[in-house]
Design a protein around this nucleic acid. Structure first.
Lengths: 127, 127
DNA sequence: TGTCATTAGATGACACGTCATATAGATTGA
DNA sequence: TCAATCTATATGACGTGTCATCTAATGACA
């Protein structure tokens, strides 16, 4: 026994899901194909690029819905790909500062253009 | 060199992401804790329950953003959990009809209440 | 009827996220 | 200064999604 109100809720939810999957999927495929990084990797690059000055893992954690451990692994991959550096921080040696490498900065610049374009294409859609 | 327009896009995207993760996470945790099924499992139960008469995998595939192979595995789990049956279909023996078991119907009834409640709680938030 | 293409669904290898935990450094208080 | 606790990050086991591919059934056309 469903009420009309429930239907609406479920519709709203499906529409969010659909927008999310469509958009995330499109971006992910394109970034993967052209730059060989996934959406999560890009989002971290993007956040680090935004914070011109060095940026702690902890702070990043607060700006993405990613888990701390997911974040740690994403940064691992970015580092292995030579796009980012982890430098331990003097005043608290548990912390790490993240910084883009030149390659990271270059890739980010290009990827960001693709990212914004795909956001525009996908978020404006109705369904 | 970001334009204001881009910022807005990115903001809109973050807000969708955030709504999606918050809501999906909350539902998933609750369903897992109380009914021992995940969000995707529930969504399939929900779709099958909706289609009172028997329902092909193929059709389901068109109503969820899930991959065909993901769907196949979700249905596997639902079947192993005794919530759903797969019956092969006479006029096209490649097709399968899905139907809820009594247990499946019972669980769905309870889980749907929790699901709608959590949708309401989460989708109304600002972000 | 025989071949070729197509379609429904299943499956295995792999990548990634999550949870629980480990590790190492910081902080507090006696 | 020692012990207890807390905090920042890393890691391993595990579950689930994805892609590519497989199988079996169907359809189409000669």
């Amino acid at each position: 026994m469903e009420m009309a109100q429930d239907r609406e809720l479920v519709e709203q939810w499906r529409s969010i899901q659909s927008a999310y999957f469509r958009t995330a999927g499109a971006i992910d495929r394109e970034l993967e194909a052209r730059f060989n990084i996934g959406l999560n990797e890009f989002e971290i690059l993007d956040l680090v690029a935004d914070n011109a000055d060095a940026c702690r893992m902890k702070q990043l954690g607060q700006r993405t819905p990613m888990t701390q451990s997911a974040l740690s692994k994403v940064v691992d991959r970015l580092q292995k790909a030579g796009l980012i550096t982890r430098q331990s921080c003097e005043d608290d040696r548990r912390s790490l500062f993240l910084e883009l490498t030149d390659a990271g900065r270059a890739l980010h610049a290009d990827a960001a253009v693709a990212h914004r374009t795909l956001l525009q294409e996908n978020l404006s859609q109705t369904g």
